[in-house]
């Protein structure tokens, strides 16, 4: 791989950074909010309902990094940055294939 020169300006674009930050924020705060709501429901109302909400929260949290890869894949495709689109796609493939393999093994 060739040496690559980066400056604070070309590390990414302003709109790319904004989109990715938004996805990360929704994933982190949204899932923790669900965990809190689920915990309160579990303690005060219904154990079963609370557990369900908590499971959705944990799954959203665990899905956020993959949503972030998909977001960057689309942003790189949109910017016609084929090199980093291919890299993002490969990372996505590794994560999906390994989790399917890992669970089956």
């Amino acid at each position: 791989m060739a040496y690559e020169k980066f400056t604070p300006e070309n590390q990414g674009s302003k709109s790319t950074d904004r989109w990715v930050a938004l996805i990360l924020r929704i994933g982190a705060y949204g899932s923790v909010a669900l965990l809190l709501i689920g915990l309160l429901l579990w303690a005060a109302v219904s154990g079963l309902l609370g557990m369900r909400v908590m499971r959705v929260g944990v799954l959203l949290l665990m899905a956020t990094p993959v949503l972030r890869i998909i977001t960057l894949l689309f942003l790189y495709l949109h910017a016609r940055d084929w090199k980093y689109a291919l890299i993002s796609f490969t990372v996505l493939l590794i994560v999906i294939v390994s989790s399917i393999l890992g669970i089956k093994l």
Partner: peptide
């Protein structure tokens, strides 16, 4: 996830290198 949302927004993280 929570801390990198701040780093990304401030343009400190190099997402190309990271990816």
């Amino acid at each position: 996830t929570a801390t990198s949302s701040v780093h990304v927004e401030r343009h400190v993280a190099n997402m190309k290198l990271g990816m």
